[in-house]
Each structure stands twice: as structure tokens, then as C-alpha cells.
């Protein structure tokens, strides 16, 4: 395989490796409930987290090794920080290795890690920041007004100050977690009169952490700077919800429910190539060089 290789996890449980030439290699079996939720690098392997709570490692020979058996509650997302596996579940809990943090979300949506901080968002409670070491809440956003009642869909911690939150009303919020509980800035990505208030459900940081990429539920990707100004937007008539975005070496990789893996130029967001992969795609990981 020629690098970079993109590993994509689909809704039926398959992992697909697509190399530079467009050759596709399938690993795994298709089973109900085994939907892949996250793929990340873990030591010299790939960590695969599934909807039923099962977490596995995948080596280069294509062998899966279980490191966690299926759980009662569904898994929302998994990330790896310094070989520590952090998983968010629908039963209001976040597992950090063997320890657990309890949240108040009725429907957990997303979490983000930076340094010692863990930012969370979901339905039923405001966004918050937890400390890794003490497992205590260190910051919480100001409660919403009754008439607002907006669901926070995704969040990302840029540094120990800027906390970006995307909402179901096509808004981006920027919190300064060192200063105040109220959002510093709230910005709609589409003008209000266009009635394109589709929810933003995926956020990703650029490699230099200077830009945020936001994917919405109808397939648009926006490039936003740290002042929440929209710098660019994808031009294609894509129609499936974006589930995962990653930037690598000037290329922006994205996948979603329309079953396409799309590769854009990250500067101007021009479409370079796309691959149809037959299943709904949930997660992707770019592997720039052999593990």
C-alpha cells in the first residue's frame, strides 16, 4: 500500500483501508450492532471502538484483539491521549482508563481533550470542562435561557482558553474558559434568511490549530478561523451528513452518511477526489506513514 492510507470505519462494522492509488482493502466482518464509532492510533496499532461498547486493537496483519467487551450502554465516541483510552457513553458516563466521570447529559454528543482538560457537550445540560487529574468539573457554561433551548452537537478544545461548540441551530459558539461562563461570540454559519439552519455535528481542528472545520448534517464543510469568521465552504452538492473530518498534509479528508470518502484541498476546500464505499461511514483516520 502507498501512504498516506485512510482507514474508514463503516456502519456495518467493516474497516476499509484506501491507499494513495485508490485501492481498497476490507478488514473485519459485517454484523448488526458492531457499527464502528471511532478509529484512532494506539501505540503501533489502530484502536477501533464500536457502538455496542466493544473496543479492539487492530494490527497491520488485520487481526483484532479485544481490550473491552460489549457494554450495556452504547458508546458515543472514543479518543486516545498518551495511550490512555477515553470513552463517552450514552449512560451519562465518561471512562478515562479505569476511572469514571459522571455527567448530566440525557444524550451525550461529543468530547474533546487538551492537556489536562476534557470538554464535553450533549443534550439536557450545558457544556462543561472537567479536570483529568481530579475528575472534577472545573468550568461550566452559563445555563441557556428557556426560549433558547439549543442542543450542543459537537465541541472542540483548541487550547486551555478557547472552547468551540457547535449547535443544532447552525451556530458556532466560542467560550473563553479562563474568563467567563457566557459565550464570547456566537456566529451562524449560514445567513438567517437562507433558512439553511442545519445542525453542525462534526468539528475538527486544522494541523496548525489555527482553523476549525465544521461539518453539518447535509454534507457541507465550513472552514472557520478562531474569531468564528467563515473563510471557506465546500462547493459540491454533497447531501449526506458529515460524520468525521481530518486534516493531513494540506488535504482535508471527510466521510459521512452519503457513503463517500471525499478529499478536499484544505486551503480552498476544492474537491480533489472522492471514493464511493457502499456503506454509511462513521469514522476515519489518516495514516501518513507506516505505523
Amino acid at each position: 500500500m502507498q501512504y498516506p492510507v485512510v482507514a474508514v470505519g463503516d456502519d456495518t462494522g467493516l474497516i476499509k483501508f484506501i491507499d494513495h492509488n485508490g485501492d481498497i482493502k476490507h478488514i473485519g466482518t459485517q454484523e448488526r450492532g458492531e457499527s464502528v464509532k471511532s478509529i484512532s492510533r494506539y501505540q503501533d496499532k489502530i484502536l477501533v471502538a464500536r457502538k455496542n461498547g466493544k473496543i479492539q486493537t487492530l494490527d497491520l496483519e488485520g487481526n483484532f484483539t479485544d481490550i473491552q467487551t460489549p457494554t450495556k450502554s452504547e458508546l458515543v465516541k472514543t479518543k486516545v491521549l498518551d495511550e490512555l483510552v477515553i470513552s463517552m457513553y450514552t449512560n451519562k458516563s465518561i471512562k478515562i482508563g479505569d476511572e469514571e466521570i459522571k455527567t448530566n447529559y440525557n444524550e451525550a454528543r461529543d468530547f474533546s481533550i487538551f492537556d489536562n482538560f476534557l470538554g464535553t457537550c450533549g443534550k439536557g445540560d450545558v457544556v462543561g470542562i472537567y479536570d483529568f487529574t481530579t475528575k472534577q468539573s472545573v468550568w461550566k457554561a452559563r445555563p441557556q435561557e428557556r426560549h433558547e433551548n439549543v442542543v450542543d452537537m459537537a465541541c472542540i478544545l483548541r487550547d486551555n482558553k478557547d472552547f468551540f461548540v457547535a449547535t443544532a441551530h447552525n451556530e458556532m459558539k466560542l467560550y473563553d474558559i479562563r474568563a467567563q461562563r457566557k459565550a464570547v461570540k456566537v456566529q451562524r454559519l449560514n445567513p438567517k434568511d437562507l433558512s439553511c439552519d442545519y445542525a453542525i455535528n462534526t468539528l475538527a481542528l486544522s494541523e496548525d490549530r489555527e482553523f476549525v472545520y465544521a461539518g453539518d448534517t447535509v454534507g457541507h464543510i465550513y472552514k472557520i478561523n478562531t474569531q468564528l469568521t467563515t473563510i471557506g465552504k465546500t462547493k459540491g452538492r454533497s447531501v449526506g451528513s458529515i460524520r468525521s473530518i481530518e486534516e493531513n498534509d494540506g488535504m482535508l479528508y471527510s466521510c459521512g452518511l452519503d457513503r463517500y470518502l471525499r478529499i478536499h484541498n484544505s486551503r480552498a476546500l476544492d474537491l480533489i477526489e472522492k471514493h464511493y464505499l457502499w456503506q454509511k461511514l462513521n469514522a476515519l483516520l489518516v495514516i501518513p506513514a507506516p505505523l
Binding site: V151, V239, D258
Partner: peptide, 18 residues
């Protein structure tokens, strides 16, 4: 993809005139 949700429902397909 899920059951009816106008607020945060994720679309597999959405017809747009363009």
C-alpha cells in the same frame, strides 16, 4: 438516518433544487 428529528436529524439524502 434516525427517527423523525427536525432539529438534529442527520440526512442520508436531501433533495436540493441545484
Amino acid at each position: 438516518s434516525g427517527i423523525f428529528n427536525t432539529e438534529s436529524g442527520e440526512y442520508e439524502f436531501l433533495y436540493q433544487p441545484n
